[in-house]
Nucleic acid binder design. Structure first.
Lengths: 214, 214
DNA sequence: AATTCTATTGAGCAGATGATCTTTAAAAGC
DNA sequence: GCTTTTAAAGATCATCTGCTCAATAGAATT
């Protein structure tokens, strides 16, 4: 109506208006910002607001993604891909290393990934939305991480109550909940998350009478 | 344009069109359906779709709620109010009963409440949206349930590592994660959730060397 | 410096969405 | 049975939203 609609603001970088990026670079820029943006406001965040944050026009987004769903797919891909390192199954089952050490190493690395603000929130948003990626990720996690972990526990367990898959999920859930509290419920971060993880692991091992040095 | 916009469908109840309800009753009907609806699709669910499910016109909703936010507030109120029974703090600290029994009783009742599909999802949606109700609920939970629980644990603990608030959160989180897996991530429900809760509690007590009969 | 190529903008459309207001008709009072 | 009251429907508005497309201008090539 007024001819002033959707004028892009200055680009944050260097405070100068930077136009005409190479397509691959611009595409990456859009996806990166979209990850932050959707993590903050949810997948129903509006493309005009995203464009404003990018300092470009809204129509530019549709030059790189045919539909908003396609952009969301790119966000999913960026966030989900490479999250589960393929060498963990091997390291978790390396019996030359004490189980406690293996667990500490795994959850030290893994928590650094999943306690990330963007991952945690997009994972939750996509879970609520019923995205199949979410369920597939958890199935995969169960198959390549938790099930092997159960097998390791079974080998070492000394108690008469045999370990069950649910016990591994309980260990995992108790740790994941640290991130949920922080990033979804916005509660303060524990002073030393790594210590809490270690205690959760020790609680788990003790329950099955597993010696820490084993 | 065509004069056919937004004609309400038949009301599900008795298959008959039921019109002109007493205001209090209609209001309750709207809130009840809104709870289900928003739990399913999120708080950005559209009022027209809600009206369709109710079998009424969209404008009727705004006859009972000035704005959509006001409706959402009513949903929050309905879902949050009375969730934390006021007599739990007392029962959790009743030392004439063994701690394991107290914990089992509490989490048996509490999990029945929080493992509810609607609660779990609306709690998560409102948490992601940053609703203050969410943080206030968790603060309250920490104050009246978890902190007293820590005190009880401290009294009975036999180990040299003193229990910390984070340990109680870990117990709680591991249990809450059962519901999250089921209702947010849509994974299958554990066969016997009560058994898993019992195991989580035993794990917790064992870690602090607390005798189950104590 | 002129030309070409194409990343980006500017303008706008069609349908959706929260909200308003007038009209209709179900039920209570007489 | 007629009147009054008001719950609910019907119509519509202003704005928002995903998306399209022609016009513009930045940069590489010649």
């Amino acid at each position: 109506m007024d001819g002033l609609t959707e004028r892009p603001a200055r680009n944050g970088e260097h405070g100068a208006t930077r136009r005409r990026l190479p397509p691959a670079e611009r595409r990456k820029q859009i996806v990166d910002e979209a990850v932050r943006f959707f993590a903050e406001v949810g997948l129903e965040g509006k493309t005009r607001e995203l464009a404003r944050r990018l300092g470009v026009t809204q129509s530019l987004i549709f030059n790189y993604f045919a539909t908003k769903d396609e952009l969301i797919d790119a966000v999913y891909e960026k966030v989900y891909i490479g999250r589960l390192s393929p060498d963990w199954p091997e390291r978790l089952t390396d019996r030359s290393v004490p189980i406690r050490e293996r667990l500490l190493a795994f959850y030290s690395e893994y928590s650094a990934l999943i306690f990330e603000w963007e991952w945690m929130r997009i994972f939750m948003f996509s879970g609520l939305a019923g995205a199949s990626l979410n369920q597939r990720y958890l199935e995969h996690l169960g198959d390549v991480i938790l099930r092997p972990l159960l097998a390791e526990t079974e080998v070492l367990a000394h108690t008469d109550t045999p370990p069950k898959m649910e016990d591994v999920w309980n260990l995992h859930g108790g740790i994941a909940y640290i991130g949920i509290r922080q990033h979804i419920y916005r509660m303060p971060e524990p002073v030393k998350p790594q210590d809490e993880i270690a205690r959760a692991i020790d609680k788990y091992l003790l329950f099955f009478g597993i010696d820490k040095e084993q």
